[in-house]
Amino acid sequence: MYSEFDREVGEMRVEQERQARIDAARAELTKTGRDACECGATISPARRRAYPSATRCLECQEIVEKEAYLK
């Protein structure tokens, strides 16, 4: 059987892992992407507002998503 101490330590570890996942998700949301797409085109201001971490222009992103969908 587990002692009260073991249970408390386990609960603390679960909470620490949960908080780490929350912190990582928040950091990902606030991460900024680039001003220029991989193809060299400028990423539109509207796309940057909607998806700040964008690394591709809308046209390139559509191509990548279509290719992934067709696989």
Rank of each mutant, 00 (worst) to 15 (best):
M1I: 04
M1N: 08
M1D: 08
Y2H: 14
Y2K: 13
S3Q: 01
S3C: 04
S3H: 10
S3F: 04
S3W: 03
E4W: 13
E4S: 09
E4F: 15
F5L: 14
F5D: 09
D6Y: 11
R7N: 07
E8Q: 15
V9Y: 07
G10T: 05
G10W: 04
E11N: 11
E11D: 14
M12D: 07
M12N: 11
M12V: 15
R13N: 14
R13G: 07
R13H: 15
V14L: 15
V14I: 14
V14R: 15
V14P: 00
E15D: 05
E15R: 08
Q16N: 10
E17G: 05
E17C: 02
E17H: 11
E17V: 01
R18E: 07
Q19C: 00
Q19D: 09
Q19S: 10
A20G: 06
A20I: 05
A20P: 00
A20V: 03
A20R: 12
A20M: 10
R21H: 08
R21L: 01
R21F: 02
I22P: 07
D23H: 04
D23W: 00
D23R: 04
D23N: 06
A24W: 00
A24M: 09
A25R: 04
R26V: 04
R26S: 06
A27Y: 07
E28A: 15
E28C: 07
T30L: 06
T30W: 00
T30V: 10
T30G: 05
T30I: 02
K31M: 06
T32C: 08
G33D: 00
R34L: 13
R34K: 13
D35N: 10
A36E: 12
C37V: 03
C37G: 07
E38H: 14
C39K: 04
G40V: 02
A41W: 08
A41G: 12
T42V: 12
I43F: 01
I43H: 03
S44N: 02
S44W: 06
S44H: 02
P45Q: 07
P45M: 07
P45N: 02
P45Y: 05
A46L: 14
A46T: 13
A46W: 09
A46F: 09
R47C: 04
R47M: 11
R48C: 03
R48A: 04
R48G: 00
R49A: 13
R49C: 06
A50R: 10
A50G: 14
A50E: 09
A50P: 05
A50M: 03
P52K: 04
P52D: 03
S53V: 01
S53D: 08
A54S: 07
A54Y: 02
A54L: 01
T55L: 15
T55N: 07
R56I: 03
R56N: 11
R56Q: 11
R56K: 09
C57F: 03
C57W: 00
L58F: 14
L58E: 10
E59H: 09
C60E: 03
C60A: 05
Q61F: 01
E62P: 09
E62W: 05
E62D: 13
I63S: 12
E65M: 05
E65V: 00
E67V: 13
E67M: 13
E67H: 08
E67D: 12
E67S: 12
A68R: 05
A68V: 06
A68M: 05
A68S: 05
A68P: 02
Y69P: 00
L70W: 13
K71C: 09
K71Y: 12
